[in-house]
């Protein structure tokens, strides 16, 4: 590494990439933490968000801001349909069935996306408001990347606040440990599950829109994203927003530096990190022990 400026530049890049990973992963973490469903279709929902945003902005010519609202909502509706028609039938079949179901869904959505949007690499341009760049310590940075960092921070704080300071958060935390207790509280557990799954879908879609200008749209994008999100989830520990946040930043920065310094083995490093964490602390950096499903 040549000098301190490059380090800073890479660090900021890594930070924004990490924030993107957080935005993408937090929905997955939420659903897994509360429903115990490891949603292997999460990457697909992310992809749908990105593609719908593409259609809205490029095909129909609306602004990025319209896409930022409509696309996540569309994905949330999709998640609602999935939860109501398919997922709820598997709650009684156990966690393995749910994982497998979402795995099957990922296959289906993969081909559907290919059918509608084709197999070419597509891209969305950065909204004009954020298309400029800023200079920090003599280095210029795309403004959009800094905005992403801000969005990630706001989302993290918001989720933390909801989980720890609100009634909904209390219900959600209870769901993590004791679904019978929630039933006793008079809260419809099924309803909570539906809401959480839809919220997870919304966050996935939101991540898709935010990430599209940086990461682009291409076939297989959902699997690459899913794998990275799973890595973040495992490293951070299940059911911990703080853990997911920390892990996303670590993975983002490590992956960015890795690609810069040792491009040959950058992905290898990430997976090796995850393996080490799993062996050293099987419940992740900040995860609490969740009873196994």
């Amino acid at each position: 590494m040549d000098n301190i400026e490059t380090i800073i530049a890479q660090f900021i890049n890594g930070l924004s990439y990490g924030m993107l990973l957080f935005v993408i992963t937090c929905g997955l973490a939420l659903v897994f933490g509360i429903l115990g469903v490891l949603n292997l279709a999460h990457g697909s929902l992310y992809m749908m968000g990105a593609y719908v945003a593409y259609s809205i902005t490029v095909s129909f010519g609306f602004s990025f801001w319209v896409a930022l609202i409509i696309a996540p909502l569309t994905v949330a509706v999709l998640a609602l349909i999935i939860e109501r028609t398919l997922l709820h039938t598997t709650y009684k079949l156990g966690h393995l069935s749910q994982v497998l179901l979402t795995f099957g869904l990922a296959y289906i959505l993969h081909d559907l996306a290919k059918l509608v949007w084709g197999a070419n690499v597509l891209s969305i341009s950065v909204p004009s408001l954020f298309s400029g760049s800023v200079s920090i310590l003599g280095q210029t940075f795309p403004l959009y990347r800094l905005i992403v960092i801000g969005v990630g921070l706001v989302l993290a704080i918001g989720l933390w606040w909801i989980q720890n300071k609100t009634r909904w958060g209390a219900i959600i935390r209870a769901g993590l440990s004791d679904s019978e207790m929630i039933g006793a509280l008079g809260v419809n557990i099924r309803f909570v599950f539906t809401v959480v799954f839809v919220l997870g879908g919304f966050l996935a879609g939101f991540g898709g829109v935010i990430a599209a200008p940086i990461l682009g749209l291409y076939p297989d994008m959902e699997f690459q994203t899913l794998i990275l999100a799973l890595v973040v989830l495992v490293i951070g520990g299940l059911g911990s927003i703080t853990g997911t946040f920390t892990a996303a930043i670590i993975v983002g920065v490590l992956e960015t530096f890795g690609r810069y310094l040792v491009p040959e083995i950058s992905m290898f490093i990430i997976f090796a990190l995850m393996a080490v964490i799993l062996i050293w602390r099987p419940h992740g950096l900040l995860g609490k022990q969740v009873t196994e499903g």
């Binding site: 398919l86 039938t89 598997t90 079949l93 069935s97 497998l100 179901l101 795995f103 099957g104 869904l105 990922a106 296959y107 289906i108 959505l109 993969h110 081909d111 559907l112 059918l115």
Partner: peptide, 12 residues
Amino acid sequence: LLLGVIFIFFVI
């Protein structure tokens, strides 16, 4: 797509 549909059918 087909594989996914078949698989989900079996799972459920």
